[in-house]
Amino acid sequence: MSWKTRNRSFYYQGAPEPDDLAFAPSETALLVIDVQNTYLARPDRTTLDAAGQAAYDAWTPFHDRMNKIVIPRTADLLAWARRNGIECLFARIACQTKDGRDRSLSQKMPGWNNLLLPKDEHASQIVPQLAAKGDEITVTKTTDSALTGTNLRLILHNLGIKNVICAGIFTDQCVASTVRSLADESFQVVVVEDCCAAGTDALHEQELAIINMIYCHVMRADELKAMLKLS
């Protein structure tokens, strides 16, 4: 099953197959979203109590996917984009203040999304394997959407970008929110499914079906490369 028929929700079961996309490299950007040190850090399991070990084990599939699939394939996708003159941009969650008083409400609420990531700390940096090179642009946000909380829309406009390829985490949160914002601004959007992850595979797959065909086209990295016929 190809990207044209995969990841379809109830709404699009009978929809015709989309045409191949024809993206000019000069009008295309690759946006890597929130692959930051904080999300890859893990404690020593042996130091945790029973509840901590259970939580550790619940997150192990995510870490396995990130280290074995998402990060290596995103690194390869970045190399491909750079080789073909596709702009590479990065978004990260980070606050300007040490106490996080400039964060959005969603990042101040209790629970997993309560993120205190001052901009200069190690935890808030993009992982080294996917770091920006040269004058590649990184935007810093305190929102889920990389467009809502930054000047990214203006940057993309000034760069002459019409098409945005998205990778990163989390599929069902910041990736999906960014994709929706891009679609509402009339960018053509591709989500590279094997360069994304959610907390669970079920959440990842569910969100891909929700956003596919209305806000973006979802495909694997190899399908994207084959379709665009670049080096």
Results as ranks from 00 to 15, higher is better:
115 L>A: 08
108 K>C: 08
193 E>W: 03
145 S>Y: 10
130 L>V: 06
110 P>E: 06
163 N>Y: 07
165 I>C: 07
95 C>V: 12
155 I>K: 11
166 C>D: 03
134 G>A: 09
120 D>I: 03
116 L>C: 05
127 V>F: 05
122 H>Y: 12
175 V>L: 15
100 G>Y: 01
146 A>E: 03
110 P>Y: 09
118 P>C: 06
134 G>R: 09
95 C>D: 09
89 L>P: 03
112 W>C: 08
151 N>K: 12
167 A>E: 10
106 S>Y: 05
194 D>F: 02
101 R>W: 11
191 V>D: 01
185 E>Q: 15
174 C>W: 10
131 A>F: 00
155 I>R: 06
114 N>F: 07
161 I>R: 11
101 R>V: 04
121 E>R: 07
166 C>H: 05
127 V>W: 02
95 C>I: 06
163 N>T: 14
186 S>M: 13
98 K>G: 10
179 V>L: 11
90 F>C: 08
134 G>W: 03
93 I>Y: 02
105 L>A: 12
142 T>R: 03
87 E>M: 07
179 V>C: 08
142 T>A: 03
199 G>H: 12
135 D>G: 02
200 T>N: 07
101 R>G: 15
187 F>H: 07
99 D>S: 09
110 P>L: 07
158 N>E: 14
154 L>E: 13
100 G>H: 04
133 K>L: 11
149 G>S: 08
195 C>S: 12
179 V>M: 12
88 C>E: 00
186 S>A: 15
155 I>G: 02
92 R>W: 03
136 E>I: 02
166 C>A: 14
178 T>P: 08
192 V>E: 05
196 C>Y: 00
106 S>V: 14
141 K>Y: 07
160 G>L: 06
198 A>E: 05
153 R>V: 10
132 A>F: 08
117 L>T: 11
200 T>W: 05
154 L>S: 15
98 K>D: 14
131 A>I: 05
191 V>C: 13
111 G>A: 08
94 A>W: 01
104 S>C: 06
147 L>G: 02
149 G>F: 04
186 S>R: 14
98 K>A: 13
113 N>S: 13
110 P>C: 06
167 A>M: 05
152 L>I: 09
157 H>F: 12
125 Q>H: 07
96 Q>R: 12
158 N>A: 10
160 G>K: 04
87 E>Q: 13
184 D>F: 13
100 G>P: 07
113 N>Y: 12
143 T>R: 04
127 V>T: 07
184 D>Y: 13
153 R>A: 15
152 L>C: 08
181 S>G: 15
109 M>W: 09
158 N>Q: 15
140 T>W: 01
196 C>I: 11
122 H>A: 14
90 F>Y: 14
99 D>L: 03
121 E>D: 13
